[in-house]
Amino acid sequence: MTIKAHQRLLLTGAAGGLGQALRERLKANCEVLRLSDRVDFGPAAADEEIMLADLADAQAVDAMVQGVQAIVHLGGVSVEGPFGPILQANILGLYNLYEAARLHGVMRVVFASSNHVTGFYRQCDTIDASAPPRPDSLYGVSKAFGEDLSRFYFDRYGIETACVRIGSSFPEPKDRRMLATWLSFDDLHRLITACLTTPVLGHSIVFGMSDNAVTWWDNNQARHIGYVPQDSSDVFRDAVYARTSAPDLSDPVAQFQGGGFVVAGPFAF
């Protein structure tokens, strides 16, 4: 049973794909779910609040954070692209979020980091949270910055953060790479719930993946969070193999964990 550990929980990036997947699920975690994005995504339902905010607007972010007890931060640019928008949303925007959290006494954040923080490790490597970042993109660099920023706010101000390096969260794996990186929507919710309810979170890095037989990531340093995935990409393996061809091992997309992100761009500012 999911515990309603917080009276008011903020979900940013609520209009995005994962935000939509979590909107109903996260209502089990709180009495009131505050939803935010930069674009209008319709009216609030029962037990919801909606506050639109551009993450680069410090005043709007301050108002968005006021009155909440915890934050699930999915907002920002979620793909590789020009640095300007990434800078505004993922770097300045995250600073604005943590400053607002500090000012309003919000002491727990679940930060949607990304597997692209470590995308330049090879697919034959197995890494854990102690492995140095090797971003595969400007997007990955922005998430590495976010992990460092959240560490600073923990060390200086005691704001606990789970940096969830989300793999590939879709209804099912789309290709062979996702057999290793897949995270079901239900397991994503289980992971966020564990981050919100573990007694002592500290500053933690946890890889967001389901119970996949093939994996490049080891969550041995996140056992204190208590995340136990219940889904697996294995049930999709035969179908994925049937519709995809064997990888070209000379292709960087097949060599590195970041997949297509390692060759994306360049982009204009």
Rank of each mutant, 00 (worst) to 15 (best):
H6Q: 11
R8A: 04
R8G: 07
A15G: 13
A21Y: 03
R23V: 12
E24V: 12
R25D: 06
K27R: 15
A28N: 11
E31Q: 14
E31A: 14
L33V: 14
R38F: 14
D40Y: 08
D40Q: 12
F41R: 09
P43F: 08
P43V: 13
P43A: 15
A44M: 13
D47P: 02
E49C: 07
E49N: 10
I50W: 05
M51N: 08
A58F: 01
Q59T: 14
Q59K: 07
Q59Y: 10
V68N: 00
Q69V: 11
A70I: 07
H73S: 05
L74G: 03
S78W: 05
V79W: 13
P82M: 10
I86S: 05
I86G: 00
Q88W: 05
I91L: 09
I91S: 01
L92W: 00
L92N: 04
G93C: 01
L94P: 01
Y95C: 00
E99M: 02
A100Q: 00
A100F: 01
A101S: 03
L103H: 07
V106T: 09
M107T: 13
M107A: 09
R108Y: 11
V110E: 02
F111G: 00
F111A: 00
S113F: 02
T118W: 05
G119V: 11
F120E: 04
Y121I: 09
R122P: 04
Q123P: 11
A129S: 15
A129Y: 02
A129T: 09
A129E: 09
S130F: 06
P132W: 09
P133N: 09
R134S: 07
P135K: 01
P135D: 03
D136K: 04
S137Y: 04
L138T: 06
Y139I: 03
Y139L: 08
A144L: 04
F145Y: 14
E147M: 01
R151L: 05
R151K: 10
F152W: 09
D155P: 02
R156W: 09
R156T: 14
Y157C: 06
R165S: 01
R165N: 04
G167T: 09
S168P: 02
S169P: 12
F170S: 10
P171A: 13
P173C: 14
P173W: 02
M178A: 08
A180R: 04
W182M: 10
S184L: 05
D186Y: 06
D187T: 11
D187A: 03
L188I: 10
L191G: 02
T197S: 14
P199R: 07
G208C: 03
M209T: 13
S210P: 02
D211K: 05
N212D: 09
V214P: 00
T215M: 11
T215R: 08
W217Q: 07
D218Y: 08
D218N: 15
N219P: 04
Q221D: 11
G226I: 03
V228L: 03
V228H: 11
Q230V: 11
D231M: 01
D234P: 04
V235G: 15
V235C: 14
F236N: 08
R237D: 06
A239I: 12
V240L: 06
V240E: 03
Y241K: 10
A242S: 15
A242T: 10
R243W: 15
R243H: 09
P247R: 03
D248V: 10
S250K: 13
S250T: 15
D251Q: 15
Q255H: 12
G258W: 02
G258V: 08
G260M: 10
F261C: 01
